[in-house]
Write a protein that binds this DNA or RNA. Structure first.
Length: 450
RNA sequence: GCGAUCGUAGCUCAGUUGGUUAGAGCGCCGGUUUGUGGUACCGGAGGUCGCGGGUUCGAACCCCGUCGAUCGCCCCA
């Protein structure tokens, strides 16, 4: 026997409650994006490396050391996608989706980054993603954010706030960046080692440094507001006004910047409030959804200037917060106590009728009779049907219907047994699940939940 | 890339200063009892102690390496 191979570092096999929470996030996303009429797109999992290196920026850490890249047999460098946006921008340009502009699209799936795994962060991770392409108006930002807000709300996540900032247009951003470099260069020797590095590479990042040595100088650093052009300011005002009108709560975060080069104007993150339940579940990983406007991206890929705005959110992180709030599926248990084929066939007829009427059913027919009940009860069904042999000659196969108690120990006292036989034409099941179940002739028809 | 902690049964963990055949609970399988049965009791299967070296008469335990996990830093979502 050879050894079982290990899974790749930073990958995960998701099962059980985690998998249910994961699916709940995706299902909620799919349902809500349809309400906003975002169109589903499916994207390749890998692209030519240049798609990401040009779009994201050569100097960023993502490109310089966090990409999963490899050469194909023709010697071309390919990369497993570290994000959705660059690939969607490439598709927009190469498929002529300009004709659909403004185009609202949504997708979800696996992404890859070669990083050290830690809480809520994996080498293969999964995101939901929404983009509006070819829309320059601030109303696009508002709609996109309203959808994000609704998704988080419908996932039942509390205590999360939208942190909002503007990076201005290209000129504003450059002017501000210059002023920041000047400001921090004057005190360079007193900054943390990391921030001295950042000064050259990514000065905006100094703003959200956690190091106390840096915090002192961050407070009086130049603010973007002083460098905003009139247009940029008007744009931001329109976004915030729109959010207010849409009932989306937000807070200004002047030092919120995004790591990637292509962002302009609006930048935002949904962050759990200090001390909230969600914050506690996430460890040092705090942002649960982030994005912004990337008006410069299309040009970096050789396309015409195209305004666009989008966001992405990690499914694992959302699932972690949702946790056991995932609605549990109510199930009917059918226990076949009899060993006779005829009775099994009758039971399976009922099972089929229930499933075709949208009722989830689990069947127990193997192992000792005791085991069948043990297993059925452990699955905590909302109701149980028992098929057993007739007691007397000529009597029809006997069905017991009972409402199983939901809590341990209440089975015997709390349970309401309603024995019925096939000769009777009506029996009740737990109304909270399916309403009345009525047998007519050989068919079981069920009324849906009210 | 850096730091800290940790790898013993399917799962959660014990395992005393290094000392015979490595334990428990849960789970799993079989059985007895309980009126339709989630309980209780009896029995059973299941571990080359992550892997590879080293020290020692002797290593789950000490040392080195390696792989992996967890948490944090950098970065980012």
């Amino acid at each position: 026997m050879s050894k079982t191979p290990q899974a790749i570092r930073g990958t995960q096999d998701i099962f059980g409650p985690d998998a249910e929470a994961f699916a709940f996030v995706v299902e909620t996303f799919e349902r809500v994006r349809k309400l906003y009429r975002f169109r589903r797109v499916e994207m390749p999992v890998f692209e030519k490396t240049e798609v990401f290196s040009r779009a994201i920026g050569e100097t960023t850490d993502v490109v310089s050391k966090e990409m999963y890249s490899f050469d194909d047999r023709g010697g071309e460098s390919l990369t497993l996608r570290p994000e959705f946006t660059a690939g969607i921008a490439r598709a927009y340009l190469s498929n002529g989706w300009q004709q659909h502009a403004p185009l609202k699209v949504a997708t979800h799936g696996p992404l890859f980054r070669y990083e050290r795994p830690q809480k809520g962060r994996y080498r293969q991770f999964h995101q939901i993603d929404a983009e509006i392409l070819g829309a320059a108006e601030p109303q696009a930002d508002v709609e996109l954010l309203a959808m994000a807000d609704q998704i988080i709300r419908e996932l039942g996540i509390e205590g999360v706030t939208l942190h909002l900032n503007t990076l201005g247009d290209g000129d504003s951003r450059e002017a501000w960046r210059g002023a920041l470099v000047e400001h921090f260069r004057a005190v360079k020797d007193e900054l943390s080692e990391d921030s001295q590095e950042r000064l050259e590479k990514n000065p905006l990042r100094i703003l959200d440094s956690k190091d106390p040595r840096d915090r002192r100088f961050v407070a009086d650093a130049p603010k973007i507001d002083a460098y905003l052009s009139d247009d940029a300011r008007a744009f931001f005002d329109a976004v915030t006004a729109g959010l207010d009108a849409a009932g989306v709560k937000w807070t200004r975060a002047e030092s919120l910047v995004r790591g990637l080069d292509y962002y302009r104007h609006t930048a935002f993150e949904f962050i759990p409030d200090e001390g909230s339940e969600a914050a506690g579940k996430l460890g040092s990983q705090s942002t649960i959804l982030g994005g912004g406007r990337y008006d410069g991206l299309m040009e970096s890929l050789g396309g015409a200037p195209t305004p666009a705005v989008g966001w992405a959110a990690g499914i694992e992180r959302l699932a972690m917060i949702v946790g056991d709030k995932t609605p549990r599926q109510q199930t009917a248990a059918v226990v076949i106590e009899s060993a006779e084929d005829q009775i099994t066939n009758i039971a399976m007829m009922y099972v089929r009728a229930m499933r075709h009427n949208g009722v989830p059913v689990l069947v127990y027919r193997t192992g000792s009779v005791k085991k069948r009940f043990d297993k059925a009860l452990k699955d905590d069904p909302a109701i149980m049907f028992v098929f057993k042999n007739p007691r007397t000659e000529g009597e029809a196969a006997r069905i017991d219907v009972r409402v199983a108690a939901h809590k341990t120990g209440e089975l015997n006292k709390g349970l309401e047994a309603r024995p019925a036989t096939l000769s009777q034409n009506l029996f009740l099941v737990d109304r909270s699940i399916w309403g009345n179940a009525i047998r007519k002739g050989s068919e079981l028809s069920l009324f849906s939940k009210q």
